[in-house]
Amino acid sequence: MLETDFTALLLTVKLAIITSVLLVIICFPIAWLLANYKGRFKPYFEAIIALPLVLPPTLLGFYLLVAFSPNTLLGEVWHNLTGHQLAFSFSGIILGSLIYSLPFVMQPLLVGFNQVNSQYNNAAIALGFSTSKRFFFLLIPLLKSTILSAFSLGFAHTLGEFGLVLMIGGNIPGETQVVSIALYDHVEALNYQAAHELSLILFAISFICLVLLFKFNRSNLGFRGKNASN
């Protein structure tokens, strides 16, 4: 049992890292656009982004299962592009995780952008800095720690993903059998000993992640020096 558990752990960490990196890259410009958008559709966009927070993971998983089917548009397009299926594949659960953890990465970024906008970005616009200069040389440095906490939050959340992977994963070791699924397996098979061991390891990893998250999140908005613990 230990070998498949180890594989499951590696797979889970790999999934969490890839998902979080992709999410930061995807969410950063969207958060920037949304923070600057003041039109009347803003609440609708914000609600769509927050949906995965509220919907049960099994619901998300179920509809993804339908969407991944080679008979529907998404599944068909993917199959034509890559020759593979989305269900039961690592790519499939990455896609699922991207949706599942999106609000956890988007929220801190949105908050960060709003802070930066109200203080620094507006002043920089008035002074006459161009958009690209502000984006690359002002926003990104100021938002470094925000990006880090968004990443950590997405990472920690993806570590614990279960319901969604249960629906679309197919429980394939090394491909879609993440730790939460392996754990569920042990419990279902009445192998409580293995379940305890695996739980402990996952708990330890999650805890360490969160400790690091809070440790490095001390500095707000990339402040320097003594007042970094602002």
Partner: peptide
């Protein structure tokens, strides 16, 4: 230069 024109903290 706005009234609220802070220096960049980083």
């Amino acid at each position: 230069q706005l009234q609220a024109c802070p220096l960049f903290p980083h």
